[in-house]
């Protein structure tokens, strides 16, 4: 019988008390998820590793300020996303900032888009999607990554970003509409109305 997994908060506490192995266990527990999130911001494996490592060093430095009311993973994801965005800015690959009012009611007729061709390779689909996502404002990019790639619930996204569920819903709606617009602009062949 395997021992019950140690809770994140216990590992955090042990790390704060100077137990390096506990912090290592926390990293091992989340490293795959973190690599996956950062993959949506850069496809360079070296940069992915650098960003994840940087985020984890930040997390350790601020471990004592972690508010234990929220989940450790929520806090960790927020730091990783911020680090990834910060990294893109430093590299001059500045993610577009949204200038519109996100709380306004989104348009009711977003553009239509066809599914990728059946003969398209998965890698090709992922490449096109990645290019389109990089053109989106960072707030749209981030909600799409969290929802579509990481499968996070609206409540989790709201907690990570510090916004309401209503804002998550509205932001996702706009993000998807923008995604379709940009995809059709660069790949008009996927317009089902043509």
């Amino acid at each position: 019988m395997e021992p019950a997994p140690v809770h994140d908060l216990d590992l955090v506490q042990e790390a704060l008390e100077g137990n390096q192995l506990s912090f290592q266990l926390l990293v091992e527990r989340y490293q795959d998820k973190l690599f996956s999130i950062v993959r949506q911001y850069t496809r360079n494996p070296v940069e992915i590793e650098d960003i994840v490592q940087e985020a984890l060093l930040k997390v350790y430095r601020r471990l004592d300020s972690f508010q234990k009311q929220s989940s450790f993973s929520t806090w960790l994801y927020r730091v990783v996303v911020n680090t990834a965005l910060d990294f893109l800015k430093r590299c001059g690959r500045n993610p577009v900032r949204a200038v519109e009012d996100l709380e306004i009611v989104p348009e009711n007729n977003p553009p239509r888009i066809a599914a990728p061709d059946a003969n398209m390779e998965q890698e090709e689909i992922a490449r096109v999607t990645h290019e389109v996502l990089l053109e989106l404002p960072e707030i749209f990019h981030t909600v799409i990554v969290m929802r579509e790639f990481e499968g996070l619930a609206y409540q989790e996204i709201a907690d990570i970003l510090g916004i309401s569920i209503g804002t998550v819903e509205s932001r996702l709606f706009r993000a998807r509409a923008r995604f379709k617009e940009h995809l059709l602009r660069s790949h008009p062949e996927f317009d089902p109305t043509v």
Binding site: L21, D32, L57, T129, E148
Partner: peptide, 26 residues
């Protein structure tokens, strides 16, 4: 549209990554 969001296989963390990060942090 959701079919465009294919979760690519992310590069795996290199061996010893967690130990290295923990060592650097401490």
């Amino acid at each position: 549209m959701k079919r465009w969001f294919i979760a690519e296989e992310a590069p795996a963390a290199p061996p010893g990554f967690a130990a290295r990060v923990a060592r650097r942090a401490f």
